[in-house]
Design a protein around this nucleic acid. Structure first.
Lengths: 181, 181
DNA sequence: AGTTAAGCGGACACTGCGTCCAGTTAAGCA
DNA sequence: TGCTTAACTGGACGCAGTGTCCGCTTAACT
C-alpha cells in the first residue's frame, strides 16, 4: 500500500504536470520543470515516472478509460448494437472529441513509434478490427492501421491548427473512410 | 561556387550517413557519429547540415524527385490520364515501394510534426488533393490528410516489421481507402 | 517510544547538441 | 610560380537535459 507522503507527492506531480503541459508543447517541458513545479526532487519524480510519456499517459488514462467503457458497454452507435460502419463513424467522432480536449497530452504521451506500443493503441486497434470483422471485410489486419493512422495526434494537430479545420470537419472527413469496409 | 575540399567532404558525409542510417535506427545515430565516420570535424558537419533530418532529406531527395516526376509526367496510371481512383492506388503502391526501400531514411527525416513541414509532404498532399478534386469529391481538404496519414513511416514500419505484413498486403490495404472518394 | 522499510531529493556523472575561432588550404591573380 | 584572400576546417568548449545513486527523513506499525 502507498504511504501518505507518496500519495501526496503523486497528486502534486500530476497537477503540476497538467498545468505545464497545458501551458506549452510537451517536449518543451523537462522533467526538471515538473519536479520544480511540483515541489519534489528529481529522484522522487523518477521513482514513479521514468519519463514524460508515462506522466502524460497517467493524465490521459481516465479519459481513455471512459471512452473504452462506452465502446464496450455504452449505447449504440458507439457501443454494441449498431451496424459496423455507423459504429466506426461514432468512434471517429468520439476520438476527435478526445483529441480536441487533450491533443497536447496525447502528443506528450506518444512520440512517433511509441504510439503503437501503448495499451491504448492496442485497444483502439482491437475495436476497429472487430468492426471490420463484423462487416465481413476481408484481410482486416491490412486495413485497420490505415484507418487508425489519421488519429495520430500530429495529424489532428496539423488539420486543426495549421489548416484551421473544425473538429466537425475533421470528423466528417474521417467518417468517409468507412467507405473502405 | 563550391570549393573542391568542400565538395569532397559533402560526398563523404552523405556516404557515411547512408551507411550509419542503414545500420541502426536514425535517432541512435548522433551528429558526432556521422562526423567521425566521415572523417570530418563537428564544425564542418554543422556548416552544411544543421541536424540529422537535413542529412536524411538530402539522401532521400533523389528518390522522391524521381517519383514526383513520374506523378507529373509519367505514364498512367501513376501519371496523368487514368481515372482518379486508379491513380490513387498507383500512388499508394509507389509510396509503399519507396518506403520499403528507405523507411529508415524517412524515419530519420521526419520526426513527428516535422513531417508536415517538409516540401515533400506538400507535394504528396497537392497530388492527392488534385485527384480528389478530379473525382468530384466534396471538401477535399477534410479528407486528404487522412488519406496520407497511413504513409507515415512509423505506421509503415509497424505494419511491416511488427505485424509482419508484406509490402503487397500493405499496398492492397491502402488501395481500399480509395472507397472514400 | 522504538524499529524498520519505504520514500525523498539533491548532487553527480554522462551524453549529445550547437557554437566559435584559430589555423589551414583552395582558388584567383599577377 | 608565388602571393593574397576568403572560404573552409575541426576540435575544444559551454550548455542543457537525462537518469542514477545514496545518505537522510519520516510514515506506519508494534
Amino acid at each position: 500500500m502507498e504511504r501518505a507522503d507518496a500519495a501526496r507527492n503523486r497528486a502534486r506531480i500530476l497537477e503540476a504536470a497538467a498545468e505545464l503541459f497545458a501551458a506549452r508543447p510537451a517536449q518543451d517541458v523537462t522533467m526538471d520543470d515538473i519536479a520544480k513545479a511540483a515541489g519534489v526532487g528529481r529522484g522522487t519524480l523518477y521513482r514513479r515516472y521514468p519519463d514524460r510519456a508515462s506522466i502524460a499517459v497517467a493524465l490521459l488514462d481516465e479519459h481513455e478509460r471512459a471512452l473504452q467503457e462506452k465502446l464496450l458497454r455504452g449505447d449504440p452507435p458507439l457501443g454494441p448494437g449498431a451496424p459496423p460502419a455507423e459504429r466506426l463513424t461514432a468512434f471517429y467522432a468520439a476520438m476527435v472529441e478526445l483529441l480536441e480536449g487533450h491533443v497536447h497530452l496525447v502528443l506528450g504521451a506518444e512520440v512517433g513509434r511509441s504510439r503503437f506500443e501503448t495499451g491504448a493503441y492496442g485497444f483502439w486497434r482491437a475495436h476497429v478490427r472487430s468492426l471490420l470483422v463484423a462487416a465481413g471485410t476481408r484481410a482486416p489486419d491490412a486495413l485497420v492501421d490505415a484507418l487508425l493512422a489519421p488519429l495520430a495526434p500530429e495529424v489532428y494537430g496539423y488539420q486543426r491548427h495549421d489548416l484551421g479545420l473544425t473538429p466537425a470537419q475533421i470528423a466528417e472527413g474521417l467518417s468517409r473512410l468507412t467507405g473502405a469496409l
